[in-house]
Design a protein around this nucleic acid. Structure first.
Lengths: 186, 186
DNA sequence: CTTTTATGTAAGTAACTGCTTACATAACCG
DNA sequence: CGGTTATGTAAGCAGTTACTTACATAAAAG
């Protein structure tokens, strides 16, 4: 691994554990096993390094890579719900960084977050209108419910409580959510 | 207002806008209109002040104060959903502080968060088992869906996007969520 | 009136932080 | 070989930060 990569990785880890202001450049360089001078030579400033981390570890490509499952009805929602949940889990550190920068939101962090929600809703929008047969308006609201629930669940259970839920708990939740959203008039 | 109160209020505001590490004690004391020495005399340390802010502005009493509505069915869920949403909004700053401290979670912040979720689930548990007629297990999972969706929705739309949703949007969401959760087998 | 209490001003300290400069070294490239 | 490139060490600087000490003052309490 190049020095650049090692620094990026170390920065990712540090920022996600202690936030932007809680992390020092000394700390990052030590964790990366390089000198602090190298860090500044390669990235110019702490802020710039932070930006690169945000780009490098973004969850957005992961979400884009999720394929819309064939078929229809509840089963499809369960499938996509699980895929999304485990994508969130895989990028937990990235999401922690995002959350911790909610205060003093710089435009760029805000933009990253907006694109994250857009990407999610776009994917779910496609799934919902193909798998369930819903009007544009119905679909949009249900997508919001589904997306919010999944995201809220992940944040509460995994990020804040700092644990990793057993598979059955995740399944139970996603099934319940999918059933709720795919049934009824809501 | 006493100096103590002014400092608490200023600290609350600063921490919610810039996080713990992003805020300096100088800043707080200036915002409070007192000298920095006074801040340290009254609170001992920055950390202690932070703790007091967390206690003083906690959302938990707000949630405890919400009365379980009479009646049954979907209407009740809508009622409680709206009450909860507007409680979250009223304590947005507190929640921002909580979110921003998700990195480097101290035990105390983690505990505050746990109690927050417990309080929420307890309230919703009572509502769900009285208003809908559900078994213990069904109720518990539906409560999780309801709670996660509401919380996730609030965080995405209001905290991260930094805006205040128009009332109709909130209503539409809560109605859709309530319908989804109260109908079906989920 | 005198003491206590609450607050202020001034000054400063020790540690830390982001970042820079100067110089060495070792590997790789033509 | 000679030069470029990537990295390291050492030193440090200027600014900031949490927090302290010493002393003044004015109001409140007894």
């Amino acid at each position: 691994m190049t020095a650049r990569e090692r620094i990026l990785e170390a920065a990712y880890s540090c920022f996600s554990r202690k936030g932007y202001f809680g992390t020092t450049t000394r700390e990052i360089s030590q964790a990366a096993g390089v000198s602090e001078v190298t860090l500044f030579r390669l990235f110019g400033s702490k802020k710039e390094l932070f930006r690169e981390v945000l780009i490098n570890y973004s969850i957005i490509p992961d979400i884009r890579a999720i394929s819309v499952p064939e078929g229809s009805g509840e089963e499809v929602l369960i499938d996509i719900g699980l895929k999304l949940f485990f994508s969130l889990r895989e990028k937990k550190e990235f999401l922690k960084i995002l959350l911790s920068e909610v205060t003093g939101l710089t435009e760029e962090v805000e933009e990253v977050y907006s694109r994250f929600v857009e990407t999610l809703e776009e994917l779910l929008g496609r799934v919902f209108s193909s798998a369930l047969s819903l009007s544009e308006g119905e679909s949009r609201t249900k997508v919001k419910v589904f997306r919010s629930a999944l995201f809220g669940f992940f944040i509460s259970e995994e990020v804040f409580q700092g644990r990793e839920l057993p598979y059955e708990d995740v399944i139970r939740f996603v099934k319940s959510l999918s059933a709720a959203v795919s049934g009824g008039r809501g």
